[in-house]
Amino acid sequence: MKKMNMTLTGLFAAAILLFSSCKKDDADVAIDKTNDGTFKVFTEGNITTVQNLIADTIIGLTPVGQPYGANKFSFFSIENNALVPSSDSATNKWDIAFRGTTIITNAGTSGPGLGGAFVLIGTFDATASVPADSTFYTDTAPLYAIRTGSGKGWYNYDGATNLVTALPGRVIMIRTATGKYAKLEIINYYKKGITPAATAPDNDKLSLQRYYGFRYTFQPNGSKTF
């Protein structure tokens, strides 16, 4: 009996070990990547993905029908993979900030940091380093390092459908507030990462926009290769 108990205890112990080890594996692998419309940050290997970063969503329309928000940037730290409160906007704690289609970096007229950016044509995966002959621009409002305006920087605006599309084949090269480098790709501008159909009602197009989805690779050692 005692022996049996021992065996059972052993089995239990083995089972617990087994289960616990399973649990540990799950925690490593099963990142919840489903885009449910909430703000989420997760890292796989050296790529961090951000979903639904809210960037000054529309709160009303002007009398001539122009949408407007609260005119506030959402600040984000690429080094820490997290949002930064706007009370820290005058510090080196943030690297990149979003307001509507405007993206700023922490330098020049935008902040006290060593930041900067430029837009590279190519794919995210094929961009292995910051090209040697490249120049990082800093913000001199109203002209930003990442140009605003349809087709100039990272997006295209279609006047007929009122849709903002993240241009494919654009990699935003970023210098962080502390002078390190990252490559970033905007994936989508709409909630849940789904651009409304061209034929969707205007209300949907307005209420679902300004939810950034993007991914980036940060090089913490200060070198220009990823």
Binding site: T123, F124, D125, L167, P168, G169, R170, V171, E185, I187, N188, G193, G213, R215
Partner: peptide
């Protein structure tokens, strides 16, 4: 460029 099923540029 266009985007693949993950919305990544290709």
């Amino acid at each position: 460029y266009t985007r693949d099923e993950n919305n990544f540029s290709v």
